[in-house]
Write a protein that binds this DNA or RNA. Sequence first.
DNA 1: GTGCGAGCCA
DNA 2: TAATGATGGA
DNA 3: TCCATCATTATGGCTCGCAC
Length: 471
Amino acid sequence: MVDEPRDNPYIRDPDLDFKEIGDMSKEDAKEEVEDLREAIEHHDYLYYIKNDPVISDTVYDTLFNRLATLEREFGLVEENSPTQRVGGEPLDSFETREHVREMLSLDSSEDEEEVRRFDERVRREVGEVSYSIEPKFDGFSVEVVYLEGEFDRAITRGDGMSGDDVSKNVKTIRTVPLKLNKAPELLSVRGEIYMPKSGFHELNEERLKKGKEPFANPRNAAAGTIRQLDPNIVAERPLSIFFYDILDCSQEVKTQRETFELLKSIGLRVNDLNDLVNEIDDFIDYRNEIMKMRDELEYDIDGVVAKVNDIDKREEMGKTARHPRWAFAYKFPPKISETKVRKIIVQVGRTGKLTPVALLDPVDIKGVTVSRATLHNEEIVKKLGVTNGSKVKVERAGDVIPEIEEVVEKSEGEFSMPNSCPVCGSDVVEEGKYHFCTGGISCSVRYIFYWAILGFFVSSLLFGKRSGKSA
DNA sequence: GTGCGAGCCA
DNA sequence: TAATGATGGA
DNA sequence: TCCATCATTATGGCTCGCAC
């Protein structure tokens, strides 16, 4: 638990009878600024993280304004002062930065059997284990680094090795502390940024009033917000964060449980639905319990995660190129909707591979309009029996990728791959389960250069127009 | 002001 | 983000 | 046979920069 600062006059029943600025020396101001910062940090913690404020909003605002005034009048503005959350100059672009350690994604499935197989593999490799279990948040993850207990930087996941430095934007998030309490010298943590459902709805109402397009769903609103170059806009959007992992820490941590305890004790916001179990059955029950609560939560989740609690055992299990081998996400079943296939089209990829894609009557699946779904190859289309005009069940696999589940109502005819390439007209050949365009380079070249030529044409027009004007 | 591609998130 | 299929190792 | 890995394909929403 974060300690209450001692000998600070602005914690409980703050004295708001401030000295006249004209009567103060710079030393006086410095002292007061330090007390105010410490107090405001603490009040932020109580308000945003513990949800248990000890002063009213008006008193808070008074303290905040006093701090801003002193900083301005005496030239005491500092980067990690609470007053610096808001505002700042817009960036030209984001800098790319390396993570202290790679940020992997989790292996996952909706299938209970897969979860049991994961458990068997774990026990085969490292013996008896307990699992730390927690919800899987549907936001986007960032690395946040604290040095000497002070906020240093925040980096998006990117390709896992390095990402964009979005520090200025992340600093506007009230649930991200700028200073930590008794923190290790070096601490790099992973957290999930999200937009609370209520904030999302309020934001959309405001946007409608202003005649702007509402956002489609909280996740994309949050992801879009963090890509804003102007932190002032970010500051007005309701973002929040949960921290859940340590990437690097100068203090030894032995288990996932200790991770949560450490994060909490230094003032980082942690979700409280996590638990510890010894049996995989308990994890499966947990998933079903959380699934029932899903709609009542203030944030979107797309499943639950089990992590081997003991960190030595994790190291023993290691990782693959994409996932740690000691963790597994048990996802919720995707929402299934019915719609009609308007038409099956065939796309040609960079390598000349032909892929059938179903164009659908648009349906809304959990805040996303689905209007097309890949059918992978001819064999799969035939196995499913998808034809133009048939009624189908669609889901979003992993709540992301549209996928045709089954045909509900067939229609006339049968799909087959065209004999000639829909892009260049060359012959099409079969290679295993796939079809390829024999136009080879000339097809893909034509495909790519079509745009290049168009671009050249347009730019030469433009060039002609400009030189005409200047002449 | 609008539209489109690139590049990002999942 | 997911699914697929080829490939290579145990 | 089982498993992991790789390359390739695919979706939708969002912001930004640039062209018009």
